[in-house]
Amino acid sequence: MLQFLFRRLAVLIPTFVGVSIIAFAFIRLLPGDPVQMMAGERVISPERHAELSQQLGFDRPIVVQYLDYLGGIVTGDFGNSIVTKRPVLSEFLALFPATLELSICAILLAVIIGVPLGIIAAVKRGSWFDQGVMGVALVGYSMPIFWWGLLLIIFFSGVLQLTPVSGRISLMYFFPPVTGFMLIDSLLSGQSGAFKSALSHLILPTVVLATIPLAVIARQTRSAMLEVLSEDYVRTARAKGLPPRRVIGLHALRNALIPVVTTIGLQIGVLMAGAILTETIFSWPGIGKWMVDSVFRRDYTVVQGGLLLIAIIIMVVNLLVDVLYGLINPRIRY
């Protein structure tokens, strides 16, 4: 086990260095001199230009700039945003809970609905239920979620006036963040109605973000379940006359869930990409929107640091999934 972890970490480190080089190189490739960009229509003198370049460190050899950047990262310094001049890491940490809250809710929703649907569809293979679920799942899987979000807004916010259009909580409530999770903070604040408000703001974005993972998980659970159900040991159990519920619940399910766990883990990347669109549509103050805004503002250091931080999160989650996979799958020995 330990050896396995070390081996994985050994792979992770060169990947991380590669990721950092790419993130760093990208930003140097972005068109337009950042100093000129900041000045806009205003003309700045060559001296001032040189001074600013020097202050921002753009005048040094590229290798030195990179090593400097890498050195900073090790100590948790991802540089300062060109636009806000605040540390990239602290902006990231301030916004990350919003994305995390949304992602956790979405993945929970996807698992809670997707796994049972997949199991039932597999057990009742070929029935109208199976066909219906799989049909809907394929539609969900093919969904342009940015459009799906707009449709939900039109219907639930526009026509029915049930849900708010954007943000995390009504402006009427105000309390300092404790955990950064609005659902928990609103409960801690003790203000009546705050939790309800936070919840009503969360519903539509969660549904939108959960759509694709839900479809994938339902499909995956079904096919994993089908495979397991055709295995010899399940057939033996059935032949022995064990009640079907016991066969499915005890024998089949446990083994079918193994590939499903991997699938769920793989959805993290999907969630991050989905968060970009979902947060943009619902003005959700998280890192997806932050990244999109920064790309448009040409906030080089934020794009660079954000790419890197997100990649790190995805790599770590993938590692955890692999470890978890090993723990629940007795067939894998390290």
Binding site: Q161, M172, Y173, S192, G193, A194, S197, S200
Partner: peptide, 14 residues
């Protein structure tokens, strides 16, 4: 909308 109850809460807080 849930504005009324929210508004009441805000008033209370204020």
């Amino acid at each position: 909308m849930k504005l009324k109850s929210a508004f009441a809460a805000a008033l209370l807080a204020a």
